[in-house]
Nucleic acid binder design. Sequence first.
DNA 1: ATGAAAGCGCTAACAG
DNA 2: CTGTTAGCGCTTTCAT
Lengths: 331, 331
Amino acid sequence: MRAGADGGVMATIYEVAALAGVSPATVSRVMNGVSVSPERSKRVREAAEALSFRPNRVARTLRRQHSEVIALVIPDIENPFFTSMARGVEDVAQAAGYSVLLCNTDDDHDKEARYLDIAVGANIAGVVIAAAGDRSDVKVLIDRGRPVVAVDRGPHGFDIDAVTVDNRAGGRAATTSLFDQGFRRIACVTGPRDVETATQRADGWADALAAHGGADHALLRHANFRIDGGEQAMTELLDLPEPPDAVFVANNLMSVGALRVLSQRGLLPPAVGVAMFGDLPFMPLAPLPITVVQLPARLIGTTAAGLLLERINGDDQPARTIVLRNRLVQH
Amino acid sequence: MRAGADGGVMATIYEVAALAGVSPATVSRVMNGVSVSPERSKRVREAAEALSFRPNRVARTLRRQHSEVIALVIPDIENPFFTSMARGVEDVAQAAGYSVLLCNTDDDHDKEARYLDIAVGANIAGVVIAAAGDRSDVKVLIDRGRPVVAVDRGPHGFDIDAVTVDNRAGGRAATTSLFDQGFRRIACVTGPRDVETATQRADGWADALAAHGGADHALLRHANFRIDGGEQAMTELLDLPEPPDAVFVANNLMSVGALRVLSQRGLLPPAVGVAMFGDLPFMPLAPLPITVVQLPARLIGTTAAGLLLERINGDDQPARTIVLRNRLVQH
DNA sequence: ATGAAAGCGCTAACAG
DNA sequence: CTGTTAGCGCTTTCAT
């Protein structure tokens, strides 16, 4: 036994082989379930147990040129939408014997690029990515033949698998619902201009109002996709000379912010119309009368991980885009 | 260039060396910031750029016996407390050039053990772990000299660094606050018996009531640390012949469940007293009159990651336990 | 079914 | 400062 980095010990396949009186190749075969005589197999297993041998995955990866790790690249690990998705990815990956390397990009293209470089260098089997923006560059992976699946938002200009929802239709449905409830000055709080889900959802809002004299673009706000973004945008809207009587908020966290502001001003639904894209997480109270476009976050994750595993296993059919259904719910 | 796993190409240090007209060792030195003549250094950099070379971290790790990856082992990635913590860990790790391998154990000891085995085999530099239970076994890591830092809950019987909060004092303070508000039949909903944070917080509850005739243990409930656990326990309590007039709930998600049940029955605070351990995440409304023991989740993460990095860098002073302050807030 | 041996890409002595 | 070389631990032909 040799000393490990910090004085620990790491039994190798050679030591197991020596103890079991077989060759290293035989140990390798046993560890990988390749046919070995029962008698030797037993000796190997006992020797491995005795030495508390753990196969060195680093060496294996170097040799096989392929690791059992996938990377999950998301912009905000504190957003419940992405954690649900992460959970879905993790479940599927784990069941297939893969680990998940978590990459929180914070919507920062540099951080994202750095992570993708690491993924390449680590011989990652594949990547599920919710891109920081339209122009995220997954070329470094594609060039090396690593499969990539886009979720939620797609990096443009790459012909890769994607799992999304119909953002525009969702925005339209939510807004239409507000209109049907009798609201007429319907505002929209959406995300950054360079995030395609944000613009699509806002387009849906505009669509819905087009039939009724058109959307008033003074009532459109772009904010970050966080709570403070929602607070700020909602405050601005309420301070307008002619404030809206309803609002469609294009993501879950901004909805929290918007509702906080409304709540502070005593303007809770149904006094004012509220529709939101994505579920309000951890709502502790009996439901407010709010219109919600429910996103199948976990399903997005499991679906994406499934596609990725197929690609990892050699599937090379043309790129697919899977559009998952979002359900409109009236609380 | 050789074919990669899926037909991609991966330039090696040898190819860069050949193109730059230097030895592989020189390329390695350039990539690692070891002194090399400026002229050669430039040639190497250009060659690397031209071949879009990415150093193979797998090979490096095999050689160095040490990777720049730490594992974060948590029971529930969908719990905002752990995601905040994860965020803290990730920030510090990333700043120090480390990546984070996310391990979601789902409170399952087998899953946890499997992940720890993987961590060992992957030559992980260290582990931050919120153990699935008291008896989580990090021996496999300790034996090999890999540093481990416990957060939130500590696996017992190991002399390792830990970052915690004072659970008992928090439980006591929250309960005392309810008593001071005039409530007299104060129930407690806490987590599983084999999770030390759960029992400690319940002990705090018992402490607080000891001075006033003692706690009524018919009002104590153990549930899982999830929303449904809180719902179930709260329902049971309210259905008691003599229901409580207040409740101390020992974690954030169970509080959501408890409040949902209360809300459904029209029993919102201040009609009934509510105190909780951990912040209510994403509260969309103006604050209810609730007593909250605020946990510095992110700080726990950054602190733990800091300790871990110190250990990775060779610090071998005796194990430390850092107890972070939790603040009592009246909303 | 089993063993011998080469080599995955990199780093770190060691020698110059 | 620079090149040569020997592995890190494992898998996988290729023989046997």
